[in-house]
Amino acid sequence: MRWGMVIDLAKCTRCHACVAACRIEHFLPLRVTWPRLIALETDNGYDVDVSTYPVRCNQCKDAPCVDACPTQASYKREDGIVAIDHDKCFGCRYCVIACPYQNRTYLSRKRNPNYFPEHAQTRFEKMGKKLYPHQVGTTEKCNFCHERIDAGREKDLKPGIDRDATPACVNTCQPRALTFGDLDDPNSNVSKLIREKSGFVLHSEYGTEPSVYYIDYKLGGNPSNKAPVEAQTGSHIQHLSTVYAPSKPKLAKKNAD
């Protein structure tokens, strides 16, 4: 099993929702951003290309950052995710330099001001310190939301298919430009996309074997405009107009965790 992501460059709209979702999911310090968008805009004289590349930790199979880490704080999980044990990291920033994709950020005190620097912390920030503490003086990066994956798999959910086991950025993406799944499974959604749309990775020549793939193509040219049955019936939303949600006291679900 090796979790991977396929990013659809044709669909990405540069809306930044993935960044916002990540900030909420991980209570990110104000000046740290795990997933980022890079704008590539070229004009070679006859063809203009306006593209947005969402980048995040590539979770490389042969990860230079893991090899470089002097304390083994960065390590490779069995499911292919490169994770960081923040209790082991001593903040040497060698991995920040060694990552060929520049996807790691050292959390300095300057990167960690209050949301409103001149003012008191918001309740969200305070709660974040409890629920998802960040350690100043260590290095951070995208972790493919492995907290969500682990919690979801305990409930037998499938990452990439079931929302509660899927990274937050994938869930929130409005154009559905992000797809998540198992790269080792040839029938998974990601493997199929890579195969059918000739997925590529960034800087394959480094030999790092990233788990984040990109696909790019021209929009339009679809052979049929016939709507599938579920779209015709609106079945995916139909229940909303007929079924009542639980009554309000129940709506505020109490969760003992």
Partner: peptide, 8 residues
Amino acid sequence: GTMCSKGL
């Protein structure tokens, strides 16, 4: 279940 940066 999708949302944009403004809403989030």
